[in-house]
Deep mutational scan, measured.
Amino acid sequence: VTTYKLVINGKTLKGETTTKAVDAETSEKAFKQYANDNGVDGVWTYDDATKTFTVTEMV
């Protein structure tokens, strides 16, 4: 189990959250659901070296 981080650069929501998951794909699903639940829709990137997802909304 690995800890993954999500950085949110939204128009109205900014911040970070973490989750523990067995792999990046599992954490990505959880993070995308979290973003969707909070009305964040944007461009996703992933940095495997830091286990960090970033979602950026276009303004």
Rank of each mutant, 00 (worst) to 15 (best):
T12M: 10
G15P: 04
K29C: 07
D37G: 05
G39D: 07
E25M: 12
G42F: 03
Y4F: 11
S27R: 01
Q33P: 00
V55R: 01
T19W: 12
M58F: 13
D48Q: 09
L6N: 02
K14R: 12
T45R: 06
A21H: 04
E28F: 15
K11G: 08
E25T: 10
N38K: 13
K14D: 05
E57G: 05
V55A: 02
T52M: 04
G39R: 06
T52V: 05
T3Q: 10
T3D: 07
K29W: 08
E57P: 07
K51A: 05
E16M: 12
E25P: 09
L6P: 02
K51G: 04
E57Q: 09
T2C: 13
F53V: 00
N38Q: 13
I8Q: 00
G15I: 15
A35L: 10
N36E: 13
N9T: 06
E16S: 12
T45D: 08
E28I: 10
Y34Q: 02
E25L: 12
Y46P: 00
D41R: 13
A49R: 11
V40N: 01
G10D: 03
T19S: 07
T19R: 07
K32C: 05
A30E: 12
V40E: 01
T19E: 05
D47E: 06
Q33K: 14
N9F: 13
V7A: 03
G39E: 06
N38H: 14
T19Y: 15
S27C: 13
N36V: 14
A30F: 15
W44Y: 01
T56R: 05
D41I: 14
E57A: 07
A30Y: 15
G39K: 07
V55N: 02
F53G: 00
K20G: 06
D47M: 03
G39W: 04
T45A: 08
A49V: 11
T19K: 07
A24E: 06
F31Q: 01
T56M: 07
T56E: 06
T56V: 07
K51N: 07
G10S: 12
Y4G: 02
A49G: 08
K11Y: 11
N9E: 09
K29S: 07
L6Q: 02
L6G: 02
V40C: 05
G42N: 00
D41L: 12
L6I: 03
T3G: 04
N36I: 15
K20Q: 14
K5A: 04
K14W: 10
G10L: 15
Y4Q: 02
V22M: 12
N9Q: 10
N36H: 15
E16Q: 10
A35D: 01
A24W: 14
V22P: 13
Y4H: 02
N36D: 11
S27Q: 04
G15Y: 15
D37C: 10
K32Q: 07
T2G: 08
T52S: 03
Q33E: 09
T2K: 11
T3V: 13
G42T: 02
T52I: 05
D47Y: 03
A30L: 15
T26W: 06
D47H: 05
T12R: 09
F31T: 01
A30K: 11
G15L: 15
Y34V: 04
